[in-house]
Amino acid sequence: MTTLITDTRTVFSRELRPTLRDPFTIIFSMVQPLVFLALFTPLLPDDDGTALQWFVPGIIVMSCLFASSMTGSNLLFEIQTGSHERMLVTPLRRPALLIGRALKEIVPMFAQAALIVTVCLPFGFRFNLMGALLGLIILAAFCIGLGALSYTLALASKNQEWLFWTVQQTLIFPLLLLAGVLLPIDNGPGWLRALAKANPLSYVVDAERALFNGDIWSSATLGGLLAAAVVAALGLGVGVRAMRRSD
């Protein structure tokens, strides 16, 4: 018999298979953040030699954020062709459709995270393995929620693709900038800090930095965990409802 886990695996492996059969695109996309890292890191103020410690977890979050926000983009096409409808008629559990598709975007990003970390080691980057693994779990939860929201957005954008891209592009950059991924928020004006405080991604980014640095039992970890859990629950709830209503 099937379970939520086997259903998720079915969806996940279906989604990933075309990529595995044609791995060139994924290899190419994996190198992109390295270029970003190489060009951006030298610009960061690095008085005490901790720029990489601060920046690398942020870059990993950024890749996962971009990737999972694209979860719905493949779906747009499959809604048009009819293969999404065919999935909806199968007994696959609805959350598995959301989680499986989101994981297809996230898992390659975790391979990328390993690559980024490895490349940064010779430049003095240090991390705590336990903390990093826990950090990736929190990140995965957040991205599943975001992926489910992206899926919902694709359902809502049926027959009007521009809507998907407009909303995705409009939201992704404020979300990113207001989480202090590229530049620290601490010195910003009050209104900006208030917005950052309302941004769940801020807590996830803070948690990633603490965890990669080995600060496992901290309030940052708890904050990140909570923010990720809330986003995951919200995304899955909204996504399952949207699937029931879509026509």
Binding site: T2, T10, R17
Partner: peptide, 27 residues
């Protein structure tokens, strides 16, 4: 079983892969 108006198989997939995925979806 349901065969809709559109194409059930994903365009970037291969037919055999889709058939196997479909079987897995039904347990």
């Amino acid at each position: 079983g349901y065969i809709g108006q559109g194409n059930g198989a994903g365009h970037s997939q291969r037919g055999r892969d889709e058939l196997i995925s479909q079987g897995r979806a039904y347990g």
